[in-house]
């Protein structure tokens, strides 16, 4: 049997809200070490990679590897039936054809149970090579979300340039052009408010804002986001999930022809 109880159930709610517009169906790979998911969007431009380690659950039981194919829209609808402070348990019986979701109120006086039919998903797994990135930018996730939203006023793509001074987002379209420049923070009250640029070499890449906007829906998961860039390789956008794992998005760059 597979059973994973997540005391902070709202993490799962935020996760599914963050990926459900990008990916319709996904295989949750359940292993003794934890739960993972990898899926591309339908146009094969971006990829979602989720990891939730077993030690983030309490308890976590996985006797053998299981693949749970789940429609994320359905899962999102079901998760809307839980409260933010509910404890959420995912269970799958051996040889069962469904995943069971249990929502438990903090005082345990309300228990709801939903049985979701599993779906067969032909999921291509990609090998993501280890990459030494030219620049790694860390910033508040709310700031990332705001910049992406602001740039969308101007056009459908954004050029992100990292240098020792900081990071510059710029867009131009029919109505005009604009940019937002963030300097590296010198002194901040909280590390979560800081902007840092870890630079090996200056790099400038162009990306579709539509996808960055979808990625930024993960902002409620984590106060900070990390953007990793290298010339002519996909952007990595990473949100940490408490102490238990991460939600990563990869986005292929736009390249001059």
């Amino acid at each position: 049997m597979f059973e994973a109880r997540l005391p902070q159930g709202q993490i799962l709610k935020k996760l599914i809200e963050a990926v459900r517009e990008l990916v319709t169906d996904a295989n949750f790979e359940c292993k003794p070490s934890g739960l993972s998911l990898q899926a591309m969007d339908s146009s094969h431009v971006s990829l979602v990679s989720l990891l939730m380690r077993a030690d983030g659950f309490d308890p976590y039981q996985c006797d053998r590897n299981r693949t749970l194919g789940i429609n994320l829209r359905t899962l999102a609808s079901v998760l809307k039936c839980s409260s933010n402070d509910d404890i959420i348990t995912i269970r799958a019986e051996d040889d069962g054809d469904s995943a069971i979701l249990i929502f438990e109120s903090p005082s345990s006086d309300r228990l709801s149970e939903f049985d979701l039919k599993l779906v067969d998903i032909d999921n291509e797994q990609l090998v993501i090579p280890d990459t030494q990135y030219d620049a790694v930018v860390r910033m508040p996730s709310a700031e990332f979300q705001r910049i992406v939203r602001d740039m969308q006023i101007l056009g459908d793509s954004v050029t992100i340039a990292c240098s020792k001074d900081g990071v510059k987002f710029s867009a131009n379209g029919e109505i005009g052009s604009g940019s937002v420049r963030l300097k590296q923070s010198s002194a901040v009250d909280s590390e979560d408010d800081a902007v840092t640029v870890d630079l090996q070499q200056a790099v400038s890449l162009t990306f579709a804002l539509r996808y960055l906007s979808l990625f930024s829906k993960a902002a409620p998961l984590s106060p900070t986001v990390t953007l990793s860039f290298s010339k002519d390789v996909p952007l990595l956008v990473e949100f940490r999930i408490a102490d238990m794992g991460h939600l990563r998005f990869y986005l292929a760059p736009k390249i001059d022809e």
Partner: peptide
């Protein structure tokens, strides 16, 4: 003009 690349141009299938 910049063209959108597919992710499959960078990552290989398992």
């Amino acid at each position: 003009r910049a063209a959108q690349k597919s992710l499959l141009a960078f990552f290989s299938r398992q």
